[in-house]
Design a protein around this nucleic acid. Structure first.
Length: 1077
RNA sequence: GGGCUUGUAGCUCAGUUGGCUAGAGCGCACCCCUGAUAAGGGUGAGGUCCGCGGUUCGAAUCCGCGCAGGCCCA
């Protein structure tokens, strides 16, 4: 290292001899530059992720990274992680970005821990949003009219084909986007809920539930289009203004005394007149001082608190008079105040708050409140239906009794905003009514047929009448019979069928349900249990009670949330009336010739019949259901051996299946995705249950619950051991993200990718506290970019100081144990008081922290530890301190080589720790460290493990077997104090730390054995001295060019600097390095 | 309206079972370096711990009532 540029010595010498004093003050700073070991690297400061990430991606694809890992790890312990399927529609958004990145952190960190992590990505393909979109497109194209002329199954097939193409298109798009996010998964073999294999496995689950006796058929109200005679989903409704008739109807009470008792009225008016004081009725009548009073004064109405002689009524209000034939109850709010009111000679009940509104509307003249009470007192009171006399039959209902028909029932949804506070309840024609009906075992009565006309169960004058025409007929009938209090036409917003633009109605149809409360399953002790009970048991608190430990929740509060949802869970309606889905393979039996016209035909759906159809669909796909006749679909079914059939059914099926009719229901898409534990984990032999499901917290009700329930029904075991949930994206003010934000385009994932790069976005995701709401803003990505650059630059600086370092092997010492070559220093031989030992100790701590955090899915802690290590431990401390030896020592000086060995090994480990978060950058740095030529695709950090994770299982050893001196923490306290003094010394003109020395107090020998040169390098000063008698650090002013000349090469004033044989002014170390005496 | 949940410097977050002067990083300001240079180092200023009330010797922390968000229901 004695080579000098030939032109330099003469010029240097002349200047130096003539102007010696100035040289010291202003030396030629570049004189020795070429003799330094300045850092060199091709690892760019600028990441250029937009170009370089796709190159990494391509390299990994050539390597076959996913397959290679499966092959290499097949004997390792498995981490079974199961992907929840996103919907195959549209481009991925910020939510997917976070979800997929978090999942990838799991996959990659578990992989780096040495596990085998098979991970199959999936897509949810069926369902209404796609079908709706396809239908709209067809409507716009004008191919809709043609469809209408076709046969149903033919029409369904055409729609299905379009839907499939749509799904395929978006799966391809999303898979590409997800891979661009550098996620590691089996993208060559994803699971698709529309794939024949998957469909067959879904039907297996249905068969299992049928076998357990958990599937039943019942009626339920749905939005119904009369024009198209089909059920509609929420997304297919358009709200338009429509004129309707609203009516106030008096339902006459059956037992007048019971009503008066409920209002606390005494037996007769005479009694009451004597006794003015003191009982409930007086109290109750007090509040009526306000609205009804003016009328009361001039009226001949009965005085308050007196029991009238006529029969009281319950006044209801409805905007759909055509549903009145189906009325079976009147609902009141138990806590609302109701009044018994005298209105123009009639006595009726309505909510106190609404008296004024109703009577003013009807222009009533005489209004007075007789008494008031609360809704709960009215519950159970009975009334006479204004025109229906025969009790309706319970169509296909599980629990139905006529006990409560035509009576007052409680309901929390009743308000006093509109109407009378008493709600006409027809369970066959409304969702809330239906819920109330189920709760009180009321008949779910729907006398309206699919074509919008009444069936034969209604009174003679309504039979066969179209319900819209029936509105007027009902009003007229009520008026004539004296039940009508008031009616008026009014405009309101009303749902319409998006295709026919006609108004829709609520109508009951037969649906398939899974019972969550039937105790037809067994718990772990063999006792009868319901799905709900098993589910609650699976998510119980604590660890005891059961053969399987309870599901773990991350965060823990998910357990409560899930439990609450399970407790209030109604039976699961698993059928839909659509084309794009997996058919429920049920068949309708023909009615016997002598059957009663109202008789429901029997339906075939048993475990065995489903399995028979299932085998056909497994090879041919669900289209076969539409294309093939029943006898072919049931080719392998033998009704005579089906234990689930009744003797009658078996008899009816004895003649073959040709006369069966296929039903048109499809499965709820949640049933499909909720069967993925069977269709993917079990069907592909990946192991059951999964170690982890990870989704947004909305899936506590969605996929998590709807996977848990069927899995318990079919296997008795929860499909997951741990549930991890993340929150939702909100804007920087914490508000819900709106799709119509003006800058929404910049938040498209593709756009973000182009602006920031994927590693930056992943770095951001890893910094999140994902359990809560996640605020997103472009500035956050910019901040993550800054932070990323800090890490990248740290890696770069480490690499650049290894330009002349040749490791003896590409395996770090942590993996191979000892140094084997003169270039490498044995880490075990490092002095505990050396800076190298200290930093390796810090690395060990980092790895413990990161591995521990990753194991707990606490990515933020890992992120923070990694950043702090790069930013503080390395960049600001260790790297800053070793710069002097790196640059100025002889290239092969032992302490330089020692630090290079440490740098090399630590960088190798650091790349591995960063790999789960920054797959591209970590691999790029790893390859640069190992000097891998671009043509080599086989060297890849993602095939390695964390240094401390070598060996088996979850045990994490310390990466490096060094034990730094315990006094280091005290030394750093001293250094901090010294730093403060240096800062103060700036006031006295010592602005450059190299112009300063520091005296450190060496009380109790804390500094004994420490290298004072290293401590000086840590402070950036020229000299450190230890003084046993000092109590606090002090600063030495070295700005004296005679006593402490500055070394021209290292710029240090270390006290050994003098003029050397080449005329240069150098310290001992630098003279040695340059090779001059 | 109900279940679960969040609210600590400008920003993102720590803050064990109540207990030193409430911490970190970023950002900002000032300074240094110019041999990591579209880099690097140092120092500093920033807080009604969402509000009100209570328990306590003592509350960011425990309890109650509010306010403002989020998810899922109704």
């Amino acid at each position: 290292m004695t080579t000098q540029p030939p032109t330099q010595p003469p010029t240097q010498t002349t200047t130096q001899t003539t102007t010696e004093p100035q040289t010291a003050a202003k030396p030629d700073k570049n004189r020795y530059r070429k003799t330094l070991n300045l850092p060199q690297t091709k690892f760019d400061m600028k990441a250029n992720l937009l170009q370089s990430e796709p190159q990494s991606l391509k390299r990994w694809q050539q390597l076959g990274l996913y397959a290679k890992l499966r092959e290499e790890r097949k004997a390792s312990p498995t981490f079974n992680f199961h992907d929840g399927p996103p919907y195959a529609n549209g481009s991925i958004h910020l939510g997917h970005l976070m979800n997929k990145c978090l999942k990838d952190f799991v996959v990659r960190s578990q992989t780096m821990l040495g596990k085998n992590v098979p991970y199959v990505p999936g897509w949810d393909c069926h369902g209404l949003p796609i079908e709706h979109k396809v239908m709209q497109a067809m409507q716009e194209k004008g191919s809709f009219a043609k469809l209408a002329t076709m046969e149903v199954s033919q029409r369904d097939m055409i729609v299905r084909r379009e839907c499939q193409q749509h799904a395929e298109k978006y799966i391809k798009l999303q898979a590409g986007q997800m891979q661009r996010l550098l996620t590691l998964a089996d993208y060559d073999n994803p699971y698709l809920t529309m794939a024949p294999q998957y469909e067959a496995s879904t039907l297996e689950v249905l068969a299992d539930l049928l076998k357990a006796g958990l599937v039943y058929r019942a009626v339920k109200p749905v939005h119904w289009s009369i024009a198209n005679e089909t059920a509609l989903a929420e997304a297919e409704l358009e709200y338009e203004d429509r004129e309707d008739t609203s009516v106030f109807v008096d339902f006459e009470a059956l037992d007048a005394d019971a009503v008066y008792d409920a209002f606390g009225l005494k037996q007769s008016a005479e009694d009451e007149a004597d006794d003015e004081s003191g009982d409930e009725s007086t109290e109750a009548s007090a509040p009526d001082a306000k609205p009804a009073d003016p009328y009361a004064k001039k009226s001949r109405a009965l005085p308050a608190g007196v029991r009238p002689h006529q029969k009281p009524c319950f006044m209801i209000w409805t905007t759909t008079p055509w549903t009145l034939p189906a009325n079976v109850a009147v609902a009141v709010h138990p806590e609302v105040e109701y009044a018994l009111v005298w209105i123009d000679g009639n006595v009726t009940v309505l909510a106190s708050k609404l008296i004024e509104k109703v009577t003013q509307l009807a222009r009533s003249e005489e209004v007075s409140v007789i008494a008031t009470t609360t809704g709960d007192k009215l519950v159970g009171l009975r009334y006479r239906h204004p025109f229906v006399t025969s009790t309706p039959k319970c169509a296909l209902q599980r629990a139905c009794s006529l006990e409560k028909i035509w009576s007052v029932v409680p309901a929390d949804y009743v308000t006093t905003e509109d109407g009378t506070g008493l709600v006409h309840t027809a369970p066959g024609h409304g969702t809330e009514d239906y819920q109330t009906g189920l709760k009180h075992a009321l008949p779910v009565y729907c006398p309206v047929k699919g074509d919008g006309t009444y069936d034969s169960t209604v009174p003679e004058w309504l039979r066969g009448v179209n319900i819209w025409k029936a509105n007027d007929a009902v009003v007229k009938h009520l008026r004539d019979s004296g039940h009508l209090f008031f009616d008026q036409k009014f405009m309101h917003s009303y749902p319409h069928d998006w295709r026919s633009k006609t108004p829709v109605i609520f109508r009951c149809t037969q649906q398939w349900f899974v019972s969550v409360t039937d105790e037809s399953l067994r718990d772990w002790q063999g006792r009868p249990a319901s799905m709900q009970q098993l589910a609650l048991h699976a998510v119980r608190e604590g660890t005891g009670g059961g053969d399987v430990p309870p599901v773990k929740f991350v965060p823990e509060w998910g357990r409560n949330r899930m439990r609450g949802m399970l407790e209030s869970r109604p039976d699961w309606c698993i059928s839909r009336q659509r084309a794009w889905g997996l058919p429920i393979p049920a068949f309708v039996l023909p009615l016997a010739a002598n059957a009663h016209p109202d008789e429901e035909p029997a339906v075939l759906l048993t475990s065995a019949s489903v399995r028979a159809v299932c085998e056909v669909l497994r090879s041919k796909g669900s289209d076969a259901w539409f294309a093939m006749p029943p006898e072919q679909l049931l080719a392998s079914y033998d009704a005579s051996k089906d234990p689930q059939l009744s003797p009658e059914m078996r008899h009816a099926l004895a003649g073959g299946y040709a006369s069966l009719k296929k039903t048109r229901d499809i499965l709820d898409v949640w049933f499909e995705s909720g069967s993925s534990w069977n269709s993917v984990l079990r069907a592909r032999g990946l192991g059951y249950p999964a170690d982890l499901y990870l989704e947004g917290s909305d899936q506590h009700r969605g996929w998590f619950q709807l996977s848990l329930l069927p899995a318990l029904g079919a296997t008795g075991q929860a499909p997951f051991r741990t549930l991890l949930t993340h929150g939702f994206m909100v804007d920087k003010d914490g508000r819900k993200l709106s799709k119509s934000r003006p800058d929404a385009a910049r938040y498209e994932v593709d756009s973000l990718t182009n602006e920031f790069g994927v590693d930056v976005m992943r770095w951001w995701v890893s910094s999140l506290v994902y359990e809560n709401d996640i605020k997103v803003d472009l500035t956050f990505f910019a901040t993550a970019g800054e932070s990323y650059r800090k890490v990248r630059n740290t890696l770069r600086f480490m690499l650049s100081n290894l330009f002349d370092f040749v490791p003896s092997t590409s395996t770090p010492q942590a993996e191979r144990g000892v140094a084997q070559d003169g270039h490498c220093v044995s880490l075990a031989s490092l002095s505990p008081t050396s800076l190298d030992a200290w930093v390796l100790g810090e690395y060990n701590a980092l790895e413990r922290t990161v591995v521990g955090a990753l194991t707990r899915y606490d990515f933020q802690t890992a992120h923070k530890a990694l950043f702090d290590f790069c930013n503080s431990t390395l960049s600001a401390t260790y790297l800053a301190a070793i710069k002097d030896r790196m640059y100025c020592d002889k290239p092969d000086a032992p302490r330089r080589r020692a630090s290079q060995t440490v740098l090399w090994d630590m960088l190798d480990g650091l790349c591995r720790l960063l790999a789960p978060f920054l797959p591209h950058t970590a691999d790029e740095a790893f390859r640069a460290l190992h000097k891998v030529p671009p043509t080599d695709t086989t060297t890849c950090v993602h095939l390695r493990t964390f240094l401390g994770a070598r060996g088996t299982g979850d045990e994490v050893a310390s990466a490096f077997g060094v034990k730094p001196d315990e006094r280091w923490s005290k030394v750093f306290v001293l250094l901090d104090a010294a730093q403060g003094k240096l800062e103060k010394a700036k006031a006295s003109g010592i602005e450059n730390p190299l112009d300063a020395g520091v005296v450190l107090p060496n009380a109790g020998g804390v500094l004994d054995g420490f290298d004072l040169v290293e401590l000086a390098d840590l402070l950036g000063v020229s000299i450190v001295r230890a003084d046993a008698s000092a109590t606090e650090p002090s600063v030495l002013d070295l700005r004296d060019d005679d006593k402490f000349p500055r070394c021209e090469r290292s710029w240090k004033r270390d006290g050994t600097v003098r003029v050397r044989s080449d005329g240069g002014v150098l310290s001992d170390r630098d003279a040695l390095a340059v090779g001059v005496a």
